[in-house]
Nucleic acid binder design. Structure first.
Lengths: 209, 209, 209, 209
DNA sequence: AATGAATGAGTGTTCATTCAT
DNA sequence: CATGAATGAACACTCATTCAT
């Protein structure tokens, strides 16, 4: 899927880059920071990836490949539509949790600049996501479980947007909800927040206005 | 509310800063960019605001002052709770549309760094928002219109998150929904998207699981 | 002697400038620092003195006018030559103590740059000093008290140089001699150091090699 | 003794820095000045030394390392105390003549600021100097050649102070003594001035008040 | 006579990138 | 293949000074 060879050192650089881009933003992270943290020579980044920009592109490609697979597997599962939606939500949340950093960077950086290549990859990903959601919901509609008048295209923004907003405002919610440790915060996300989103989507899909 | 005098040139700088911070991020925007775009001397920013950091603070204060007032007025209105929630959503969306730039900056820049002062201003704003939501929902609960077991703290993330995710992925949705002009996109946000969010929140507040 | 009018504000500026130039050097002191410390408008310095450079010139002229008078009075006193030399040393040390700052600036700044006007004033001062020393020593030689083969031109460097070196290395000697307070340091200068210099010059003037 | 590698370009930078710091002071010299004079890229200074401040530190270390050795060798020499004192004076003067620039900087820049690291290196140097002087004089006192009541700590200020004052007022003495060429001035320093200081110190050490 | 507003030039430093080895 | 050395450009910011009022 990616046309660049990824040896160990490249992956090491990508991991460090993800962490730092996430913490300090793309512009706020210098190649020096990356090379120091990854314990590699400063020229390695340009040498391996061509430029800082292309490092970001590689990072995005590297981190978004397998979500597609996960979704395709979900579609094949033989479970009820609502259950599938719930699992879909869990997959999303889990993915973003796993790749905390990159999603932040993705949303912020990709829309500002004309990073055509990665942007396309990202667009493809989003289209794939949408198709999966569409497929699941139409299945539910066919079974008479879901309402017919649903704006399917706005389901994903609700799921990911809700989660993302919570995630982006982490310090605020840490204080508000008294989530003192990393573990507590993660638990809240995986339990309360996930439940809230599932409940929201269910209400939206099922409730007759 | 703001303790700095805002003459025309300051406001001009703030507007340019909002635009550029929004487009290219805080770190990605240089004082040179701002001064060039605003057609002012490069030293003016530091001269007027003290530093780039303080410019951001001033920008946040400048752009968030009247949201609070709008919400307070809403609370006093003598209308049904559901109607109030819908109006609240409209206010949010309208505000973010008006100040696209600053909200984008707020979301992406303000949480990763220790920009204490600006961060506090933003936290206060979010706390105020939460209080308003809480007040409205409890009113609805008292009237028996809304369910009792609502996680109030997660309502705002759903409203703003959904809207924001849509807004952040503008190019994607422009293509997907064939929204060719600025006007069409804005109309979609003000109609379909708003309706979707209102419908979502209503379902969440009213629907018995 | 000075061709500029010195009103209260000018003198206030000069005093602040002396203090700051002394503490942080000429280049290390900004007009902003001076205007803040002197509680005057930042444009006042340029307005009153023309420029930062000219402020320094004015400062030098202002601070060196009355040394000449003191020396002329000393010459007229009817006391023994050795006593006169000792008094001369006391006058020097006292003057430099009084105008701590300016002498440091004088020596450092005046030799580096071509500040012709103040440099001339300073040269005149030094010539006057030399004449006084010469006059005193020749008096002593005439009376047979002092040796004939003295290099009069190098007496002043010995007096002022010794004192100045001590003064410039204040932190070092504070530690070495355990002079914990301002007062202790000043007392050491006025007593031990003065005595040492007087003893040195006496030995030089009197001792037969 | 120095923990930084000194290649040719670094030494070139150090030499230029010494010259310019000496001429225009530390604050008065910009990295741009240095880079222009040394014909190197402006970023090289920060690249090589870390900062302008650290360049000064390196300069001090670089220029003061071998004085210590010279003094230690002097102490071991088997010559009369008075001869040793005279040689000590010659060493001082010679060193300062050789490294005119750095000593000038040392005296004027190092005491007013908290340049801790450089300051410490300089303090160590001064302490070493003092020990050498002390050792020599006590030897002379033990042999009954020098007086017992000498304030040893004020010997160095007299030696260096006298020399330095002369050196700092070079233009004045050039005119006064009609020293038309560089060579004449240097000769005067190495002959008359040195002799004067040696004579002064001898008188101070030997003459019974 | 005095000053707040404004500015162009300059500051030290960091940047991503290049290139000879 | 990999890298240390090196660099021009850009960074945020401060400077002394000017000028309209």
């Amino acid at each position: 899927m990616s046309n660049i060879e990824l040896n160990d050192k490249k992956i090491q650089i990508l991991n460090v880059a993800e962490k730092l881009f996430s913490d300090k933003g793309f512009e706020g992270t210098s190649i020096r920071d990356i090379s120091k943290e990854a314990k590699i020579n400063i020229a390695m980044v340009s040498y391996y990836f061509g430029s800082k920009e292309k490092l970001l592109e590689a990072l995005i490609l590297h981190k978004t490949v397998d979500l597609k697979l996960q979704l395709e597997n979900l579609l094949k599962e033989n479970i009820e539509p609502l259950e599938k939606v719930n699992k879909l939500i869990e997959i999303y949340i889990n993915r973003i949790c796993l790749n905390k950093g990159i999603y932040r960077v993705l949303h912020f950086e990709l829309n500002n600049k004309k990073r055509e290549k990665s942007f396309q990859a990202f667009t493809e990903l989003k289209k794939g996501n949408l198709k999966s959601v569409e497929s699941i919901i139409k299945q539910g509609q066919a079974q008479g479980v879901f309402r017919k008048d649903i704006n399917i295209q706005l389901i994903t923004p609700t799921i990911i947007g809700t989660f993302f907003h919570f995630h982006m405002n982490r310090p605020f919610f840490e204080e508000l909800l008294d989530l003192k440790t990393e573990e507590m915060f993660n638990n809240y996300m995986k339990n309360e927040l996930t439940k809230h989103i599932q409940q929201t989507i269910k209400a939206l899909l099922v409730y007759e206005n």
